[in-house]
Design a protein around this nucleic acid. Sequence first.
DNA 1: GTCGTGGATTGAAAGGTTTCAATTCGATGG
DNA 2: CCATCGAATTGAAACCTTTCAATCCACGAC
Lengths: 344, 344
Amino acid sequence: MPDARDGSLRSSSVKDVAVLAGVSLGTVSNVLNRPERVSATTRARVEKAMAELGFVRNESARQLRAGRSRTIGYVMLDATNPFFTDVAQGMERVAEDHDLSLFLCNSDNRATREAAHLAHLQEQRVQGILVTPIDPDSPALTDLAARGTPLVIVDRTRPGAGFCTVSVDDVLGGRLAIDHLIDRGHLRVAFVGGPDSLGQVRERLEGARQAWRDAGLPDDDLVVVATTALSVAEGMAAGERLAGLPARRRPTAVFCANDLVALGLLQQATSAGVQVPHDLAIVGFDDIDFAAAAAVPLTSVRQPRADLGRTAARLLLAEADDPDHVHEQVVFEPELVARRSTLG
Amino acid sequence: MPDARDGSLRSSSVKDVAVLAGVSLGTVSNVLNRPERVSATTRARVEKAMAELGFVRNESARQLRAGRSRTIGYVMLDATNPFFTDVAQGMERVAEDHDLSLFLCNSDNRATREAAHLAHLQEQRVQGILVTPIDPDSPALTDLAARGTPLVIVDRTRPGAGFCTVSVDDVLGGRLAIDHLIDRGHLRVAFVGGPDSLGQVRERLEGARQAWRDAGLPDDDLVVVATTALSVAEGMAAGERLAGLPARRRPTAVFCANDLVALGLLQQATSAGVQVPHDLAIVGFDDIDFAAAAAVPLTSVRQPRADLGRTAARLLLAEADDPDHVHEQVVFEPELVARRSTLG
DNA sequence: GTCGTGGATTGAAAGGTTTCAATTCGATGG
DNA sequence: CCATCGAATTGAAACCTTTCAATCCACGAC
């Protein structure tokens, strides 16, 4: 009896169950997959045998036969950024509804990790891959899709490519942030973010610039402060650089490329005795939960995080189920949530 | 030619590669697994064929043959709590070093999700499972281990059970927090946290009580405020309940069961005009990055998050590789990090 | 010219599940 | 009593990779 409790390592298979229950392989499989075709008495006997042996389906064998797995994967840019875990949570719900598992992978902003995860998922023959890529124009992604793996890009667009994308209008988000600051009377504003290899950063800045010009304000009064990553630590460093500016060049408000940067900057400002929002107004981006919970609640450009994830997962499953699925480019509109960090 | 680009869905197999390269199956397999055994010219021919066909190894078949996969799984209690993503990051590093993939699953504090994820991982025949369980005493865990799946419990202990555990001395953590507050002169303190079905909560409170008694302070002056979850929202709600207490019963300091609760409470207190730490001192637990970055930087009991993850992953791999591995119970010591939320 | 040697290559078997065409069996209708 | 039918069950084939014993071949030694 192949029971691991006695030290043997092999777990039991349908074959063992079939022998014990005195039926054929096919019947055991039917009990597992089409129980209604099996007579009640036989079914009971088989189920008893399974319980006795501690039978656990071998997913590899199942998958091998079926050609596809019961899994989808999400390769995220930064697992420690709550924005992405919220997106993942939206996906998880959809996966759960379809009885699929979601395989979460963290590329941690490194191209090699991203490539390794994508390769591994492909080898696993997952039903599809969700990815927030470092570079949406990478040929690796096109190859993957061309080879038949359903693929959805999350939080980026890639017009004309062979896959669906789900994103948020970052240019509009940038405009909303700057329009709000202009409304509040700010005439000298800094944009804090980087690296600009990140499309999110480029587009949010682009939106900011558009709004600034549309208001007829001089280009020079929209200062750009570059960071090397979108993290709390980089936000703090940027805050110090801002504080070092001569008073005339110093902005009265800051628009940060995401909330982590904004929280870092807020922390640095507060501890340096700068009153937020009186001396410095701050706008973040993403509206993660920590934004509202900051001691000076943060005004932020909200992205529909969970919805982004849900929609992406749904598109992926639609594509996986329908071979001549038409690729869609869904773009959500962000929304400004004003809180104390910009309201006196 | 089985190329997905022409609409056929089947991807190519070693067999296709063998035919195209004019060699046998075994040789293709050797190129993949023991390239040194294959002559340079043959190898080149095979590699060319692979590239031409876009060959991707089928991990299921490989696994089926090998009996075990190249994957380990971590079932975490709450993916949106940065504490757990930091733990996961530590594991990820170890997995990366061993050329394994880490399958991240979120039980989201729900027993049904936890069970579903554990079952799925077992069906996948993962090399081992890391889990921060809702209830470490659940027989499901013992069964899993008894059935031969290497298992490591993370952030909980379970003395005498058949698996390794890696945890932090939560009782000591509670003592550290309370000792610090007593040192700072507080004579009426609240413990905020729950539900007490969570062992973490029970033990941190136990430590707090021990320290309180050891200092000779009356039990009644250590107030317990229960929450239904360890979240920011619950922290805010608890803050309101505290504010509603009559002045004589109102504590001058709070020890929160984790940082999310502490941040919520901090936010509520600040917006209600309560000065932290002057009117109310706050100690959190975990020392997540957001604790230091809060506008009033949070004193917190630091757990070695990444180290916890690394150690757990190492123990798991040790067990997976060595059948007569001796189970270890590793307990880390937490450390108090004092910041402005308790230092005037 | 033969034998032995060692490296390169081969081919069949195994691993666990699912599927599907074929078979069995009991019952029903004639 | 036979024919027919349907439901239940069966058994072999297929999925793809890896392994390993067996074979092949070229070359050097005798």
